[in-house]
Amino acid sequence: MSNIICSIFSSIYNGSFIPHLRGIYFSLFNKESSGKTIIYRPIRFTKKFITLKENVSIFSNCRVEGISHYGSQNYIPSIILHSGVSVQQNCHITCAQRIEIGSNTALANNVTVTDIDHPYTDISIPIESQDLIVKPVRIGKDCKIYNNAVILQGTIIGDHCVVGANSVVKGIFPDFSIIVGVPARIVKRYDFTKKQWRKTSPNGIFI
């Protein structure tokens, strides 16, 4: 009992008491989600489209949003954050179809993840008014996505990958890759034969 009281007072002292309560409240009304989640003050959080597993942390000023209607189109968005995912301040996750982030993956400050693209092909229609292009996004487990990175629609990132700060990522990237740049490319992969990280060509071939 004393441990519970100490835990409560500790969370009040460090400012996490209300975020813990938000996580508990979210789990109570979302049957697919688990407890032990902490949600600070997001700008927008469309909870009916979001599944949070255990020990997910969402920090202040994030926008985690499912888009169910845009223009003349209707969508059924699904945002799935697996156990241990951390979404730091000011991140922007926008989904019209499916975004899935694997367990223990961390998004640093100001990261954007979206499965939506706004086409510009019809010059007679404002870009914001054209029908969306939507392709699901998946980020594997145990990844680190550094500050200001942008993960674009249709991207698949494997397990235990690093995305460098300020990178713009689109495409399919294998497990154990270091991905950097604009547009992002692979610069290193883990070589299990030599048991070390090795430089690669942009398409991931060891050099």
Rank of each mutant, 00 (worst) to 15 (best):
G66D: 09
A106L: 08
I76F: 00
P119T: 12
I79Y: 06
E54C: 05
K47I: 02
I50K: 03
L52T: 06
D117F: 05
S57D: 13
Q88L: 11
T105E: 13
T46V: 01
Y120C: 13
P119K: 07
N74T: 06
H69Y: 01
H92Y: 15
S68A: 13
N74A: 03
Q130N: 10
C95S: 09
K53Q: 12
T112F: 05
D117A: 08
S83K: 14
Y70M: 04
Y40W: 15
S83W: 07
S86V: 12
I38H: 12
V56H: 04
Q73W: 00
I38G: 05
S129C: 10
I93E: 05
T121M: 09
E100Q: 15
D122C: 04
R44M: 12
E65Y: 00
R44A: 13
A106Y: 07
V64D: 07
F49I: 00
H69S: 12
L81S: 10
V111D: 12
I39A: 06
V113M: 05
V134P: 01
D122L: 03
F59G: 01
I50Q: 02
G84S: 01
R41A: 13
L107V: 12
I116P: 01
I39K: 08
T105G: 12
N109D: 15
S78M: 09
H69F: 07
T114L: 05
I99A: 02
I99E: 03
V134N: 04
F49T: 13
N109Y: 06
S78W: 00
Y120M: 14
R44V: 09
S68H: 06
S83D: 15
N55T: 11
R98N: 14
S124H: 11
I38E: 15
V85W: 04
P119G: 07
T46I: 01
D115Y: 06
I58K: 04
R63D: 13
V111F: 07
S57I: 11
Y75N: 03
D131W: 00
Q73F: 08
S72L: 08
I93N: 05
N61H: 10
T112H: 10
I67R: 03
S83C: 02
G102I: 10
